[in-house]
């Protein structure tokens, strides 16, 4: 254990390296089109980029995720804030949201295909639904969890309700809001791939399905690698953003009153 603690962070790459070497070796020994070696996948990766196929599909997936996710989380944060702040709104909306929340996002596809049709709005709407509910519920929890005494303190210091909401309650709810955002930013990618596999003819998911019908394992693996990188990037960037905003005060929040 002591040795492990002394290792520099870069050493986390070591197991990945071992994994890639094993992959290459086993694939070379088992010479079958169903299991291409890592080097061939990388070559295919390069070719897909060079031909523009990967870029084009990646951009359509990325655009859908960005639009759907931003819209879903912004509306989620606003709705969640209003619900957390106002008991009447909370009581009115909570039952209906609770009813819709458990429906898996992909379960909406058949309904949305008929209502919206097969166009760009379909995946965007799906990502919207995927992001909205968890971000909204996390925001409600965050707002409700803020110690009511801080609100009293702010009020006695001359703050109006709306000022209290923006200067005290929302900042203190940020950690909860970020939990929702982090979780759902990765989930948005998982959802878009599934949606594109089922219903949309463009994007990384569609490319995956085409590769499957052509038995192009290398392309499939390239798509999965892209997917993994994007999930991780999105989750990590929200983690970074959260740290950037809240680390000043949260690192010592333990003994805070």
């Amino acid at each position: 254990m002591k040795i492990l603690k002394k290792l520099k962070p870069g050493w986390g790459l070591f197991p990945i390296l071992v994994f890639l070497i094993l992959w290459e070796l086993i694939a070379r020994i088992n010479d079958t089109p169903l299991f291409p070696p890592f080097s061939e996948v990388i070559i295919e990766f390069y070719q897909l980029i060079a031909s523009g196929v990967l870029g084009e599909n990646f951009l359509s997936s990325l655009t859908r995720v960005l639009i759907g996710f931003s819209a879903g989380s912004i509306v989620g944060i606003i709705t969640g804030t209003i619900m957390g702040w106002n008991k009447i709104v909370d009581r009115a909306l909570n039952p209906i949201f609770n009813l819709f929340f458990p429906i898996p996002t992909l379960g909406w596809i058949p309904l949305l295909m008929l209502w919206i049709g097969i166009n760009e709005m379909l995946p965007i709407t799906l990502i919207f639904i995927c992001a909205f509910f968890p971000v909204m519920f996390n925001t409600v929890t965050g707002i409700k969890n803020v110690d009511r005494n801080y609100i009293k303190a702010a009020r006695s210091l001359g703050a109006s309700d709306i000022k209290i909401l923006f200067t005290v309650v929302m900042p203190l709810a940020l950690p909860n809001i970020f939990t929702g955002l982090k979780l759902e930013s990765g989930m948005a990618w998982r959802t878009i791939i599934a949606a594109e596999m089922v219903a949309i003819p463009t994007g990384i998911g569609a490319l995956l399905m085409k590769a499957e019908s052509l038995i192009r394992i290398d392309i499939i693996i390239v798509c999965l690698i892209v997917l993994a990188i994007m999930c991780l990037t999105f989750e990590k960037s929200f983690e970074w953003l959260e740290n950037k905003i809240t680390s000043n005060w949260r690192q010592h929040a333990g003994n805070n009153t």
Binding site: K152, A153, R155, A159, P171, L172, A253
Partner: peptide, 22 residues
């Protein structure tokens, strides 16, 4: 007159300093 306009200084029992502000 509502609380936020009463011009009262209040030192709370657990002080309630806003943790997210320096």
């Amino acid at each position: 007159i509502p609380a936020n306009k009463r011009e009262v200084g209040y030192l709370f029992q657990n002080l309630l300093l806003f943790p997210h502000m320096d």
